[in-house]
Design a protein around this nucleic acid. Structure first.
Lengths: 349, 349
DNA sequence: TTGTACGCGTTATCAT
DNA sequence: ATGATAACGCGTACAA
């Protein structure tokens, strides 16, 4: 188009680089292309002699299979579609890292597309992935109806993180959000708090609901009645957390502790409290959730529930790889764990 | 492999979904495949009548071109490779978001691969991208030698962010790191500070060097001698910032202000100071760089140099799109801007 | 302006 | 076990 290279007469010079094709390898090794393909994919048995010859030729010529051609030929593209929600979020970032690293070990490449917490965007994202002939799709949470996801799984292995659904080529797993939230709340209760405010996430999502349930669980276990005035719903962002605190404070329902259902909201809440001259943890104990890096470096360092987001990515990738090779997918995430830092303290009275 | 669908007799049923091919569109519209292709790519003039017929058929059948086949046929894949360094970093995350959003508007899809600040990884990443027949490559900083990058540009349009190099199909642009750092330092000087410590990034990288130069500029402008004891080098991470503070403090070269050359190190430094019972801004004024979201929600909110990382992504994508359509790439980033928050204050004496 | 025929690099089917 | 041969879906000279 803009690169005016000579039209490349007949063939073979489509790219200036040393693009070696499977055919050339075959020729160099004195075998047929099919044989090379078979060796590459382990599709059928091949005599050791030819195997060696081909391997040598591959080394020699520096052959690298062309994933695009593979994709076209109906074979695998060695790429996995990943539907993330907001690629810039610190939460998803860590998961993507885990996915990327783990897939790479198997020679796969992730193809990230953002769903933006929007059903239509997400649908479009998946379509994009399908048209790109990805070998499988990993969906991180999201808003697509379960049924639709199941449909996708009809033609492709699908791994869903953070939701509960199952099917032939459909595998999902979740972190134990409920137990994690229970731990967080219990930690506050253990420190003598009884008026514990809660910032929920968007209750459209399972994980947000589960975290709220965990909060309820702990309160119930301690015989503390749920006070609706102590609960606000927000959106998992820093700004949302800050806003939530304002709303909470306007209700003048006093509280001595606050559990924000993710770290980003907790950080925002911390600033919101600060603006109202409420100190953490002196005036209000604060707990987050996810234990992102930011929790460790917050001021004060934030007590949080450890959820190895990176690990989530790794497990998702492994589950996908398992399905791809015909095995049974599985995922064993470490259980939730409370990381006590300096944003919480015993209620003094 | 694992999905045991009936072997799909002859053709056309390779995928259960409604995979419509260009050929089917042609048939439906009563024209030849080439004509459809021409309309799709604007390769040649076509009569309005056929144009309409084809468009109708496309709508009707819900045809979507297959990027994989396109790639094989030597056409475009409508995908752009993006070499990021650490996909999970809050800094790159924002840039990727900008890239993704902007490319999408033009129907392109980004393919993200991580270089991990490692020359070999980066090289491998680029190879991966090339083998996937991306239409262009965007490189965010990184360690690849300039010459090698230029080689890549021989066969593909390349946009490099954060480095200075140019060539036929090679475009690069940078944020004005030097001026930004000068502003940050000047801000501290304006507030009466004269003993201003500096945490540099990895001086292997242009931007880190430039930020250090900006620091020197401001000191020189104010007639303040550079004190090597007030400078430490680190790695742009929170942990690195924290460590840097320790090293600084061990030297017992007193300082009243600290300029960390990115926000992540500043956040880490803040915690490090806190651990030594030094308060920000009461004992030490602190300035960061990049103005990531975390700066706004730090405690205290961090004074920083605004660099719209998102915008950087948008500009990079646009420059690439411009090259792809044969135009002149350009990028106009807003100049650096100091955002004064609460981590800095006038030196009281 | 439009259609035909071939090639892109690989896998899969069918013989041998 | 191995080798032809035909797709895969599309772009593009070349011919008409």
């Amino acid at each position: 188009m803009n690169a005016k290279q000579p039209p490349a007469k007949k063939a073979s010079l489509s790219r200036p680089d040393g693009v070696v094709t499977l055919e050339q390898v075959a020729e160099a090794a004195g075998v047929s292309p099919s044989t090379v393909s078979r060796i590459l994919n382990g599709t059928a048995a091949v005599s050791q002699a030819k195997k060696d010859a081909v391997q040598a030729a591959i080394q020699d010529l520096g052959y690298r299979p062309n994933p695009v051609a593979r994709g076209l030929a109906g074979g695998r593209t060695l790429s996995i579609g990943v539907v993330t929600q907001i690629i810039s979020s610190p939460f998803y970032g860590e998961a993507l890292l885990g996915i990327e690293r783990e897939l790479e070990r198997a020679g796969y490449v992730p193809l990230f597309v953002s769903g933006n917490w929007n059903e239509d965007d997400e649908r479009k994202a998946i379509e994009t992935l399908l048209s790109r002939r990805v070998d499988g799709v990993i969906v991180l949470a999201g808003r697509m109806p379960d049924a639709e996801l199941a449909t996708v799984a009809d033609s492709l292995p699908v791994v869903v993180v953070g939701r509960q659904l199952a099917g032939p080529q459909l595998f999902s797993f979740s972190f134990d959000n409920r137990e994690g939230a229970r731990l967080a709340t219990q930690h506050l209760i253990d420190q003598g708090h009884r008026r514990i405010a809660f910032i929920a996430g968007d209750l459209m999502h399972d994980d947000a609901v589960e975290r709220q349930n965990g909060y309820f669980d702990a309160l119930a276990g301690a015989g503390i009645a749920v006070d609706p005035n102590l609960i606000v719903q927000s959106d998992y962002t820093e700004a949302g957390g800050m806003l939530a605190v304002s709303r909470l404070l306007e209700r003048d329902a006093p509280f001595t502790a606050l559990f924000a259902s993710n770290d980003q909201m907790a950080i925002g809440a911390c600033l919101g409290l600060h603006r109202r001259n409420l100190r953490v943890p002196d005036d209000v104990s604060l707990v987050g959730f996810d234990d992102l890096i930011m929790a460790r470096y917050a001021m004060p360092p934030l007590t949080s529930v450890r959820q190895s987001v990176y690990e989530v990515g790794v497990e998702a990738a492994n589950a996908m790889l398992a399905m791809l090779s015909g095995g049974q997918p599985k995922a064993h995430l470490p259980g939730p764990e409370l990381v006590a830092r300096e944003s919480t303290r015993r209620l003094s009275r």
